[in-house]
Simulated assay, not measured.
Amino acid sequence: MSYENILLKKEDKLSIITINRPESLNALNAKTIQEISTALDELKADNSCRVIILTGSGEKSFVAGADIKEFSEFGQEKAEELARNGQNTLFNKIENMSKPVIAAVNGFALGGGLELAMACHIRYASENARLGLPEVTLGLIPGYGGTQRLPKLVGKGIANEMIFSAKMIPAQKAKEIGLVNEVYPIEELLTKTKELANTIAHNSPMAISKAINAVNLSDTEKGFETEIKYFGELFEMEDKKEGVSAFLEKRKPNF
């Protein structure tokens, strides 16, 4: 399928979605959100794809935020619809994807851009990355999950500080507080992200899918029981048989 606002590239067991609106610093509009969602559906159905990388075009910006021009005249009903549709169409879909989604945050990740990165399972950032939630400067709050995901990643106190102050933080600070996993020079970011993706891609896709679901329930009452259930279910699946056989035979598993 052809896309207007994103690029989709498949490389062996991994795929790269690049948000490609450099003229607007890759700002998210409705069409871009829908195209990313459609690409994710395509990759979910592609058995050759094991891991997905999400990044922005150029070196200045991952996603500089939502396209404010699209919703500047909205009232309450349309604004709630915008937030709900965005979360259901894309942000929640990323978080619940059965395949890992890694954000390669190259430059600005502000507002909806940071919310997009936080919905991913893992985040790597470039040294020039700047991350923040500036919505209160517009008289708004984050609407794509920012108030819910940020406290889980960095704690309520730091999340409150970031949201209330609207300050941007540099990449190294983001690593210190656990908002991103690693920081690399911009020229190494995609290479390092691909290295991680390829490592993941050689592990059991079924086990990883179960792990994603279990981790997503880690702050709920269902978390421990879900882990136990999935642990047992995997004993009946071919990936477990291959993995254990490979270990006992002192060879690499072929999942």
Rank of each mutant, 00 (worst) to 15 (best):
Asn5Tyr: 15
Asn5Gln: 15
Glu11Met: 14
Leu14Phe: 07
Ile17His: 04
Ile17Asp: 05
Ile19Gln: 07
Glu23Lys: 14
Asn26Ala: 11
Ala27Asn: 11
Asn29Ser: 04
Ala30Pro: 04
Ala39Leu: 06
Leu40Gln: 03
Ala45His: 10
Asp46Glu: 09
Ser48Asp: 14
Cys49Ile: 06
Arg50Trp: 00
Val51Asp: 00
Ile53Lys: 01
Leu54Val: 04
Thr55Glu: 02
Gly56Glu: 08
Ser57Lys: 07
Gly58His: 08
Ala64Lys: 10
Gly65Cys: 02
Glu81Gln: 14
Gln87Asn: 14
Gln87Ile: 15
Thr89Tyr: 15
Leu90Val: 14
Asn92Gly: 10
Glu95Pro: 02
Asn96Thr: 13
Asn96Arg: 11
Gly107Asn: 03
Leu110Thr: 12
Leu110Gln: 05
Ala117Pro: 12
Asn128Arg: 08
Ala129Tyr: 07
Gly132Lys: 01
Glu135His: 07
Glu135Val: 04
Thr137Met: 11
Leu138Thr: 07
Ile141Leu: 11
Gly143Asn: 04
Tyr144Phe: 12
Gly145Phe: 12
Gly146Pro: 01
Pro151Glu: 06
Leu153Asp: 11
Gly157Glu: 15
Gly157Ala: 10
Gly157Thr: 15
Lys167Ser: 12
Gln172Ser: 08
Gln172Arg: 13
Lys173Leu: 09
Ala174Val: 05
Ala174Ile: 02
Lys175Asn: 08
Ile177Asp: 03
Asn181Pro: 06
Leu189Cys: 11
Thr193Cys: 05
Ile208Pro: 01
Asn216Arg: 06
Ser218Gln: 09
Glu221Met: 03
Glu221His: 02
Lys222Trp: 07
Glu225His: 12
Glu227Ser: 15
Lys229Asp: 10
Lys229Tyr: 07
Leu234Ile: 14
Leu234Ser: 06
Leu234Cys: 07
Glu242Asp: 13
Ser245Met: 14
Glu249Pro: 05
Arg251Ser: 13
Pro253Gly: 05
